[in-house]
Computed example of a mutant assay.
Amino acid sequence: MKVIRSKEFTAGRAWGALDIANMDGTTVRLHWTDQPYKWHVNDGEEVFAVLDGVVDMHYREAGVERVVALYTGDVFFAGVGCEHVAHPRGAARILVVEREGSV
């Protein structure tokens, strides 16, 4: 049994993470960041839930870059092959569910 108070979590560096669970190769991690990530495509699908803060998610569809603002409680699903990068507006806490070892 675990209780995680996400609003209390911080990391020593951008995108630092607290490993919450590994379920048969699917990881659940709580990330803290105040800096953008990098453009990437995951090794499989990814669920990205904003628990605190605001994140601008940039993604490419058919070679066209788009941006959607994600607010606390919003969830972004990156399907296989979805190129994306998260840009927080200040500090943010994000729950990420993805294949173990994914970028």
Results as ranks from 00 to 15, higher is better:
Pro88Leu: 05
Phe77Asp: 11
Asp56Met: 03
Glu100Ala: 06
Asn42Val: 07
Asp52Asn: 02
Ser102Gly: 11
Phe76Arg: 10
Gly44Asp: 11
Glu8Asn: 11
Arg89Asn: 12
Arg89Tyr: 02
Leu95Arg: 10
Arg5Val: 10
Thr27Leu: 10
His40Phe: 09
Asp74Phe: 01
Ile20Gln: 11
Asp43Ala: 14
Gln35Leu: 11
Glu100Cys: 01
Lys38Thr: 15
Gly101Arg: 04
Ala62Lys: 09
His31Cys: 11
Ser102Val: 00
Val41Asp: 06
Arg60Ser: 11
Val68Arg: 07
Val96Tyr: 06
Ala14Ile: 00
Val103Arg: 03
Arg5Glu: 14
Gly44Tyr: 06
Val68Glu: 07
His84Ser: 12
Gly101Ser: 08
Gly25Cys: 06
Asp52Leu: 05
Ile20Tyr: 08
Val54Glu: 13
Gly90Pro: 05
Thr27Phe: 08
Phe48Ile: 03
Val103Ser: 07
Gly63Ile: 02
Lys2Ile: 11
Met23Lys: 14
Ala17Glu: 12
Val67Ser: 10
Thr26Arg: 12
Arg13Val: 13
Lys7Pro: 04
Phe48Val: 05
Arg66Tyr: 06
Met23Arg: 14
Arg89Trp: 09
Ala78Met: 09
Val67Cys: 13
Glu83His: 04
Gly12Tyr: 01
Tyr59Val: 09
Gln35Lys: 15
Ser102Arg: 01
Glu65Trp: 08
Trp39Asn: 07
Leu30His: 12
Val3Pro: 08
Ala21Val: 05
Met23Asp: 15
Val67Thr: 15
Val41Ile: 14
Asp24His: 14
Val41Ala: 04
Ile20Val: 15
Pro88Asp: 10
Cys82Gln: 15
Pro36Met: 05
Val55Ile: 07
Pro36Val: 04
Asp24Phe: 08
Ala91Gly: 10
Phe9Glu: 04
Tyr71Val: 10
Trp39Phe: 10
Gly81Trp: 01
Asp56Leu: 03
Met1Leu: 03
His84Glu: 06
Arg5Asn: 14
Gly90Ala: 02
Arg5Leu: 07
Val47Leu: 12
Val68Met: 01
Thr27Arg: 08
Asp43Phe: 00
Val97Trp: 00
Gly53Asn: 00
Thr10Phe: 09
Arg13Phe: 14
Thr33Gly: 02
Ile4Trp: 11
Tyr71Arg: 15
Met57Phe: 06
Asp34Ala: 13
Pro36Phe: 01
Asp34Arg: 07
Val75Lys: 07
His84Tyr: 10
Ile20Ser: 12
Ala92His: 05
Trp39Ser: 08
Glu45Tyr: 03
Lys2Leu: 15
Asp43Met: 09
Ile94Tyr: 00
Asp19Pro: 12
Pro88Tyr: 04
Glu100Phe: 02
Val97Gln: 07
Glu83Gly: 01
Val28Lys: 09
Glu61Lys: 15
Phe9Asn: 07
Asp19Trp: 03
Val55Phe: 02
Gly63Glu: 02
Val68Leu: 08
Arg93Lys: 14
Val28Glu: 10
Trp32Thr: 05
Val41Cys: 05
Ala86Leu: 01
Glu65Asn: 13
Tyr59Ser: 11
Gly73Cys: 05
His31Asp: 12
